[in-house]
Amino acid sequence: MFEYIGWVVLAVLTLLAVKVFKDLNSSGVTVDENIPDVLEIQDFTPKTLAKYNGTDDKRILVAVRGKVYDVSGGKKYYGPDGPYAFMAGHDASRALAKHSFGNENLTPLDEPIDTLEGLNEEEWAALNQWIEFFASKYTFCGNLVNP
């Protein structure tokens, strides 16, 4: 019985987080005329992705489960002063799965890509919802690969 309630609570919290995140981003998409419209689809390593943090490069990219998305239009959220700035230029998969919005769940740039080992069923479900969100909202621009 308690396990069922836990699943329901997790599902509701995940859906609520995705809805809030969608609502925040739907009003914050802007176009920076200094950023080229299209980024050629390419492979990124964690180190090459890192420069796309909105500071070193105006374009802002975020990786989720091996896919890299251009989130530059949401710089209000992902840019240097945004609440999700820690994701910019990084693989945010574990942080999204754990609903932990801070640096503690980002893999250091000199380590291999996080295999996401140890995530439980609820965290995988949450991550899959985030994957759907990024895929529906932002432009795919490449894959995250180990060097």
Rank of each mutant, 00 (worst) to 15 (best):
M1E: 08
F2L: 10
F2G: 15
F2E: 10
E3L: 06
E3I: 12
Y4H: 09
G6H: 06
V8K: 14
L10I: 00
A11P: 05
V12S: 08
L13I: 06
L13V: 10
L15A: 12
L15W: 09
L16A: 15
L16W: 15
V18A: 13
K19P: 01
K19N: 07
V20A: 12
F21E: 08
K22A: 06
D23N: 14
D23K: 11
L24I: 10
L24W: 01
N25F: 00
G28M: 15
G28D: 13
V29G: 02
V29A: 04
V29F: 08
D32Q: 10
D32L: 07
D32V: 05
E33C: 06
I35P: 00
D37V: 10
L39F: 14
L39P: 00
E40T: 13
Q42G: 07
Q42S: 09
D43L: 11
D43F: 04
F44A: 07
T45N: 06
T45D: 10
P46F: 05
K47L: 08
K47W: 09
T48Q: 08
T48G: 00
L49P: 02
A50P: 03
A50W: 07
Y52E: 07
Y52C: 04
Y52W: 08
Y52H: 11
N53K: 01
G54V: 03
G54Y: 04
G54W: 07
T55Y: 13
D57G: 03
D57L: 11
I60P: 01
I60T: 04
L61Y: 11
V62H: 03
G66I: 03
K67S: 12
V68T: 00
V68I: 05
V68F: 04
D70R: 05
V71E: 11
V71I: 12
S72K: 04
G73N: 09
G74S: 15
G74L: 00
G74P: 02
Y78P: 04
G79E: 07
P80Y: 00
P80N: 02
D81C: 03
D81Y: 07
A85K: 11
M87D: 05
A88M: 05
A88F: 06
G89F: 10
G89C: 04
D91V: 05
A95D: 09
A95T: 10
L96I: 02
L96G: 03
H99A: 13
H99P: 02
S100A: 14
F101G: 02
F101M: 04
G102N: 15
G102Q: 05
N105H: 15
T107R: 09
T107W: 01
L109E: 15
L109F: 13
D110Y: 06
D110F: 06
E111C: 04
E111S: 09
P112H: 05
I113T: 14
I113K: 10
T115H: 13
T115A: 14
L116F: 04
G118L: 02
L119M: 09
N120K: 10
N120A: 11
N120G: 14
E121R: 12
E122C: 08
W124A: 05
A125T: 14
A126T: 12
A126H: 07
N128Q: 12
N128R: 15
Q129N: 13
W130Y: 12
W130S: 06
I131K: 09
E132K: 14
E132R: 15
F133G: 02
S136Q: 14
K137G: 08
K137C: 00
K137V: 07
Y138T: 01
Y138E: 11
G142F: 02
L144T: 04
L144C: 02
V145N: 04
V145L: 07
N146E: 01
N146M: 03
N146S: 08
P147N: 12
